[in-house]
Design a protein around this nucleic acid. Structure first.
Length: 741
RNA sequence: GGAUCCGUAGCUCAGUGGUUAGAGCGUUCGGUUCACAUCCGAAAGGUCGAUGGUUCAAGUCCAUCCGGAUCCACCA
C-alpha cells in the first residue's frame, strides 16, 4: 500500500500555486483555442484584501478554470486600482490620526506620500490574489496609473471633447465641505431628517424654508402660476424688511412650486439650492440653458463659501458656519418680528457625502461634465446617438447580458433618468485633467503648452478612467504607438475613433471580453460606464456577460465592519481551513445578486469536504494500484458510469448557465453522498472478490478522476494535490469531461 | 415621489404550472478503530405571508392586502 497521509494538508497550497504559475498555463500565450477573457475588476490598493475580494476571485476563477479545461485560450487579467477619491479619503483619515492635514502640505508632497502608501497596498493586494488561488496571468498585470493607461484615458477625453460630449459647466454641484470636492449624485446619500421649518415674512408675503441663513442669497420669490392667492403679486417687485435693512425682491411664477407646501411661496436662492438654480436658469437668459429664456431675475448670489461658512463681508454673519448662522439668523428674525412661526415636525431628505456623512453644501463650482443625452455623430456614418442610448440599446439588444436579469431593469431605469456626469474632482490623488488655460483660451495637453499656461487643478473621477479599463488594459499591453500629440500640446484634428479603435494583438485577440464579474453595488458607477466607453471608443461592447455578486455578510446577516468586529479575514480563514474550504463556502448557496451570509461553521463544513475528497482519492489510489486497465466493466458498474455522465452533463450545463452555486452543490452532493457513501462503501466487498475486483477498480478510478476534474474549478488545490499523487501532468489543464449527446 | 426584489423546515436558501415540496447547517436517536483527528445510518421538523382569481391542476401565473429589504430621486 502506498503511504498517503490520512489528512489533506492545506499548508502545501502555496507550492501548488507556484507549480501552476510556473507551468505558464495562466498565460493564454501558452494555450490555444477560442479566447475566453475576464478582466478582473482592479482591486483598490488602499487596504487589506477582504472577503469580498475572495468572493469575486473565487467566482471568476471558477469560470476561468472551467473554460481553460474546456480548451479555451483563457485570459484572466489582474490589476489594481489607485482608487482616487476612495484612497484619498482613507489617506486623509490616516493623516488626521497623525495630527496632519493635506491642507498643510504641498500637492507634490501629498501625492508622493499617497503614491508610496498605494504601492505598499498594491503589493499586499497582489500577494493576496495569489494566496487566494486566482489563476491570473501575471505577465499582464495592470495598474490604473500605468502611463500607458493614462495616455489612453487622455485620448478618450480629447475625443469626447471634440465630439462635444465633454464640456465644462459652471453650475450647482454637490459640494463636500470636509473633503473639499464636488461629487456626483451617485456619491451622495439621502437621509430623512426632521428639521424646523421657518415661516418668514417677506413684506406682504410669508414663506417657509428650512434654510433661513441662505436668505441673503435670494434673488426672487416664486409661486405657482395657478395659485390664485398670489396672482396679483406675480411680476411685482416687493419691498421687504430684512436683516440687513430694506431690500427689493421680485415675485415670479413657476410650475415647480407646490401650492400646498408651506404658504405656497418659496424663496429662490440659485447659488445654494439645486432646484432654485434650475428656476433661475428657466427665468434668465443668462442662465444659459433655456434659449430665449426671459431675463426676469438677477443671477446667483453666493453667500456661503467652500468651507461652509457665511461669505458676507462687513456683516455680523460673515465667517459663521452654516449651522451657527442659522441660529443667529433665526434669533435676529425673531427680534425683528419677521419670524411668523416654526413648524418643528417637518420631515425632508438631506444629501450627505457618502464617505463622511456630512451634509452636502450645494455650491456653484465649475466642473467638467460628460453629456449623457446629447446626440453625436458616429464616425463614417450619418447615425446619431447619445451615450445613454448606446448603453440602453446594448442592454436591450442583449449585446450585454446581465445576470441576474433583474439588474437589466434596474440599469435601464437608472439610464432613463440619467443626468450629465460630473467627472472632475477637486482632489489631488488621481489623474490630472489634461487641460490648460491662458486668458480665455483652453488647450488639451498632457504637458504645458508653453509660457503663461495654467493647468486645470482638478483630477478625474476614478470611474472616468476605470470605466475604460477593459479596452485600456488590452491596448496598453499592446502599447500601440499613440498618434496623439497630447504630450506636446498640439491639437489633433482627427475624427473620433468609434468602431475603428487602434489595437495590437492583445486587443484584437481578447476584445470584446466574455465576462465581467463584479459586485452589483457598482453597476452604475462602473459597469454602465464601461459599456458606454467601450461602445464609444471601440464600437463594441467591452464584455458579453455581466455577473453581479452580492455582499458577503456575517452569519447574522450583518454588514461586516471593523467597528462591529465581525470582519472575516480571508487569509486568516485559509490558513486554518484551507483555500478550497473558503471557496466552497463562498460559492454554494450564493446566487447572483444576492448577499451571502458567511460563517465559520460553513467554512469548517467544506474543510471536511476537502478532506473527504482527499480521503476518497486516497482510498481509490490505494485500492487500484497495479490494476488491469483493460478490464471489462460489469453491467452494474456501467450503470454507475452512466449516472456519472449525468453529473458531468449537469455540471457543464449549470456552468454554462453561470449557475455556479448549484453546480458546486450538486457536485458536493454527488461526491460525498453517492460516490463516497454508496459507491465506495459497496466497492469494498467487490474489491475483496477476485471475480469483481478488476471491474471495480476501473470503475472507481474512472469516477474519481472524472470527479476530480469536475471539482477542480471549485476546489482547485485539493483536487490538484490528489491528482498529483498519480499524474505527472497538471489537473489545471486536463481536458474537461464532455459527455453531452 | 419613482422603481426593484423578497416572505418556503430552527437558520441560510433551492424549487422549468404536474406524484409524497428539497438541500446544507442545526436538533434528536443509534452505530462506528475496517479511506476519512474531519466517519456512517436514521428520525423529527412545513395549513409554501394573507385573501381572492385564472386553470383539469398553483409554492409557481394574475390582482389586492400585510410584512421585510434595497436602489434611484433637484421639491424649498
Amino acid at each position: 500500500m502506498r503511504d498517503i497521509p490520512t489528512t489533506y494538508d492545506q499548508s502545501k497550497e502555496s507550492k501548488i500555486y507556484k507549480l501552476w504559475e510556473e507551468s505558464g498555463f495562466f498565460n493564454p500565450d501558452n494555450l490555444s483555442g477560442k479566447p475566453y477573457t475576464i478582466i478582473m475588476p482592479p482591486s483598490n490598493a488602499n487596504g487589506q484584501v477582504h472577503v469580498g475580494h475572495a468572493l469575486g476571485f473565487t467566482l471568476q476563477d471558477i469560470m476561468i478554470r472551467f473554460e481553460r479545461m474546456r480548451g479555451r485560450k483563457t485570459l484572466w487579467l489582474p490589476g489594481t486600482d489607485h482608487a482616487g477619491f476612495e484612497t484619498q479619503v482613507v489617506f486623509e483619515k490616516k493623516l488626521e490620526k497623525e495630527g496632519r492635514s493635506r491642507f498643510q502640505m504641498t500637492r507634490e508632497e501629498f501625492y508622493k506620500e499617497v503614491w508610496d502608501f498605494v504601492q505598499d497596498y498594491k503589493q499586499q493586494t497582489e500577494d493576496g490574489i495569489r494566496r487566494l488561488g486566482a489563476s491570473t496571468d501575471w505577465s499582464r498585470n495592470m495598474f490604473t496609473l500605468d502611463p500607458r493607461i493614462i495616455q489612453i484615458v487622455y485620448e478618450t477625453f480629447e475625443q469626447m471633447y471634440r465630439d462635444g460630449l465633454i464640456y465644462r459647466g459652471n453650475r450647482i454641484c454637490n459640494w463636500c465641505v470636509k473633503h473639499q470636492t464636488g461629487l456626483a449624485d451617485l456619491e451622495t446619500e439621502h437621509e430623512e431628517r426632521t428639521d424646523p421649518l421657518y415661516y418668514i415674512k417677506y413684506g406682504p408675503l410669508t414663506l417657509a424654508t428650512v434654510r433661513p441663513e441662505t436668505k441673503f442669497g435670494d434673488t426672487a420669490l416664486a409661486v405657482n402660476p395657478k395659485d390664485t392667492r398670489y396672482k396679483k403679486y406675480i411680476g411685482q417687485e416687493l419691498e421687504a424688511e430684512g436683516l440687513l435693512g430694506k431690500f427689493k425682491i421680485k415675485v415670479i411664477a413657476d410650475e415647480l412650486v407646490d401650492k400646498d407646501f408651506g404658504t405656497g411661496v418659496v424663496k429662490v436662492t440659485p447659488a445654494h439650492d439645486a432646484a432654485d438654480f434650475e428656476i433661475w436658469q428657466k427665468h434668465s437668459a443668462k442662465g444659459g440653458s433655456v434659449p430665449g429664456g426671459k431675463d426676469e431675475i438677477p443671477g446667483p448670489k453666493q453667500v456661503i463659501d467652500k468651507r461652509g461658512k457665511m461669505d458676507l463681508p462687513n456683516t455680523k454673519y460673515h465667517g459663521l458656519k452654516v449651522a451657527e448662522a442659522r441660529k443667529v439668523v433665526v434669533e435676529d428674525l425673531q427680534k425683528l418680528g419677521l419670524l411668523e412661526k416654526i413648524d418643528e415636525t417637518y420631515k425632508h431628505n438631506v444629501s450627505l457625502c457618502y464617505k463622511c456623512k456630512n451634509v452636502l453644501e450645494p455650491l456653484i463650482i465649475p466642473q467638467w461634465y460628460v453629456a449623457m443625452t446629447k446626440k453625436f455623430k458616429i464616425r463614417n456614418s450619418k447615425f446619431e446617438i447619445s451615450l445613454r442610448d448606446l448603453v440602453v440599446n446594448a442592454v436591450k439588444n442583449k449585446k450585454v447580458k446581465i445576470n441576474p436579469i433583474k439588474f437589466e431593469k434596474v440599469l435601464m431605469h437608472w439610464m432613463k433618468n440619467i443626468r450629465d456626469w460630473p467627472i472632475s474632482r477637486q482632489i489631488w490623488w488621481g489623474i490630472p485633467i489634461p487641460v490648460w488655460y491662458k486668458d480665455n483660451e483652453l488647450k488639451i495637453s498632457e504637458a504645458s503648452p508653453g509660457e503663461g499656461w495654467v493647468q486645470d487643478p482638478d483630477t478625474f473621477d476614478t470611474w472616468f478612467s476605470s470605466g475604460q479599463w477593459p479596452y485600456a488594459t488590452l491596448m496598453a499591453l499592446d502599447n500601440t504607438p499613440s498618434n496623439s500629440p497630447l504630450k506636446g500640446g498640439e491639437q489633433r484634428d482627427s475624427p473620433p475613433n468609434i468602431g475603428g479603435a487602434r489595437g495590437g494583438i492583445n486587443f484584437q485577440t481578447f476584445y470584446p471580453t466574455q465576462m465581467m464579474e463584479t459586485g452589483w453595488d457598482i453597476l452604475f458607477f462602473w459597469v454602465a460606464r464601461m459599456i458606454m466607453f467601450g461602445l464609444y471608443k471601440t464600437g463594441q461592447v467591452p464584455f458579453e456577460n455581466v455577473y453581479l455578486h452580492g455582499l458577503v455578510r456575517d452569519k447574522d446577516r450583518q454588514k461586516m465592519s471593523k467597528s462591529k468586529g465581525n470582519v472575516i479575514d480571508p487569509l486568516g480563514v485559509i490558513d486554518i481551513y484551507g483555500n478550497d474550504a473558503l471557496r466552497m463556502a463562498l460559492v454554494v448557496g450564493n446566487l447572483p445578486g444576492n448577499d451571502l451570509p458567511l460563517s465559520e461553521d460553513k467554512v469548517r463544513g467544506y474543510r471536511n469536504f476537502a478532506n473527504k475528497i482527499w480521503n476518497a482519492a486516497r482510498f481509490v489510489m490505494q485500492n487500484t494500484e497495479g490494476m488491469d486497465a483493460t478490464a471489462q466493466l460489469a453491467p452494474a458498474h456501467k450503470v454507475i458510469l452512466k449516472n456519472l455522465d449525468k453529473v458531468t452533463n449537469g455540471t457543464t450545463k449549470l456552468l454554462d448557465k453561470q449557475d455556479l452555486a448549484h453546480a458546486a452543490e450538486n457536485l458536493y452532493h454527488y461526491f460525498w453522498h453517492t460516490f463516497a457513501d454508496k459507491i465506495i462503501e459497496e466497492s469494498k466487498a467487490q474489491l475483496a472478490n477476485p471475480k469483481t475486483k478488476a471491474s471495480t477498480q476501473l470503475m472507481l478510478k474512472t469516477v474519481l478522476e472524472t470527479c476530480l476534474k469536475l471539482l477542480h474549478p471549485f476546489v482547485p488545490f485539493v483536487t490538484e494535490a490528489a491528482w498529483q499523487i498519480n499524474h505527472k501532468n497538471l489537473l489545471l489543464v486536463e481536458k474537461w469531461p464532455i459527455k453531452l449527446n
